Simulated scan of single mutants.
Amino acid sequence: MIVTKLERLLSFVLGALLALMVLDVTWQILTRFLPMNPSSYTEELARYLLVWIGLLGGAYAYRRKSHLGIDLLTNALPERARRATRVFTIALCFAFAAAVMVFGGFRLMLLTFELNQMSAALDIPMGYVYSVIPLSGALICLFSIDQLLQVLGSAERTADIAQPVEAAQV
């Protein structure tokens, strides 16, 4: 499935960004102490890599259902109410990601490109840095749709399986 391949690609990208961040911070430490002339761009690059890893990692964690959650109340609910609560939370996550991250993040990204806002040390357009916001939001929206289809699909399978059992009891 496309979503599974996208998850694998996201995992690879996150690993590559993390490796790049480790190399960047290592270079920062080496240039600070060995020649006593610290590199000017490494701190800013590490900061932007951390932002990208955090936002893309949030989308990855959402896909893997690894975010911290308190499911004490939902586990106590009957199956039908639990499924309805799950659908509601998925829809809420989708709405937040679509409105705030995709729509708002895209507007922020476009605004920084229009204003030609540049980063201080790297001298790159800040729109590239901010582009991770709508990208992560789009991934969360896609993962939400996939989760919603799984929840609704499992409800249909449960109903199909339950039908013959009820008919046999009558």
Rank of each mutant, 00 (worst) to 15 (best):
Val51Gly: 00
Val22Pro: 05
Gln163Leu: 13
Leu115Phe: 12
Lys65Thr: 13
Gln150Ser: 13
Gln169Ser: 11
Met36His: 15
Met1Gly: 10
Met101Glu: 04
Val22Ser: 07
Gly153Ser: 03
Thr42Phe: 00
Arg82Pro: 05
Thr158Leu: 14
Ala76Lys: 09
Cys93Asp: 14
Leu152Asn: 04
Gly69Lys: 15
Ala59Pro: 03
Leu92Phe: 11
Pro35Arg: 04
Phe106Ser: 11
Leu152Met: 08
Thr112Pro: 06
Leu49Met: 03
Ala98Ile: 10
Tyr128Ala: 04
Met36Phe: 13
Phe103Lys: 08
Ser66Met: 15
Glu44Cys: 03
Ala168Met: 11
Ala98Asp: 08
Ile29Lys: 08
Ile90Arg: 02
Leu135Cys: 06
Thr4Met: 12
Ala162Cys: 10
Gly58Met: 11
Gly54Asp: 11
Ala91Ile: 10
Gly54Phe: 08
Leu45Pro: 01
Phe96Asp: 06
Tyr128Ser: 04
Leu50Tyr: 10
Leu92His: 12
Pro164His: 06
Leu142Phe: 05
Gln163Cys: 13
Leu139Glu: 00
Leu108Ala: 07
Leu14Ser: 00
Gly69Tyr: 14
Leu77Tyr: 04
Ala81Pro: 11
Met1Trp: 12
Leu17Tyr: 00
Val3Thr: 07
Thr89Gln: 11
Leu135Ile: 05
Ala81Asn: 12
Phe106Glu: 06
Tyr60Ser: 03
Gly69Met: 14
Tyr128His: 07
Ala162Arg: 08
Ala84Asn: 11
Phe143Val: 02
Gln150Glu: 15
Tyr41Met: 10
Leu110Thr: 11
Val22Glu: 08
Met21Asn: 05
Ala81Glu: 15
Leu68Pro: 05
Thr4Asp: 15
Leu142Lys: 05
Cys141Gly: 03
Ser131Cys: 04
Met36Gly: 12
Val51Pro: 02
Phe143Ile: 04
Gly127Val: 03
Ile124Tyr: 03
Arg32Cys: 03
Asp71Val: 10
Ile140Ala: 00
Arg32Lys: 06
Asp24Val: 06
Pro125Ile: 03
Ala98Leu: 14
Ala81Met: 14
Thr42Cys: 04
Gln117Glu: 14
Val51Ala: 02
Tyr41Thr: 15
Phe143Gly: 00
Glu79Ala: 14
Leu122Tyr: 03
Val170Ser: 14
Gly137Phe: 00
Cys141Lys: 04
Arg8Glu: 09
Gly58Val: 09
Leu18Ala: 10
Ala162Tyr: 08
Leu135Arg: 01
Val151Gly: 01
Glu44Asn: 03
Pro38Tyr: 00
Met109Gly: 02
Glu79Leu: 10
Ile90Lys: 01
Ala61Cys: 12
Ala98Trp: 06
Asn75Leu: 08
Lys5Gln: 10
Arg107Ile: 15
Leu17Asn: 00
Val102Ile: 05
Lys5Trp: 09
Gly58Trp: 06
Trp52Val: 01
Leu20Cys: 08
Arg86Asn: 12
Lys65Trp: 12
Tyr62Arg: 04
Thr112Ser: 09
Ala61Met: 12
Ile133Met: 05
Leu49Gln: 02
Leu72Val: 13
Thr26Trp: 10
Met101Pro: 00
Thr89Arg: 11
Leu45Met: 06
Ala167Pro: 11
Glu43Phe: 13
Thr74Lys: 06
Glu79Thr: 13
Arg83Ser: 09
Thr74Leu: 07
Gln117Asp: 13
Tyr48Ser: 04
Cys93Val: 15
Pro38Ala: 05
Val129Phe: 01
Ser11Thr: 04
Val151Thr: 05
Trp27Cys: 05
Ile133Asn: 01
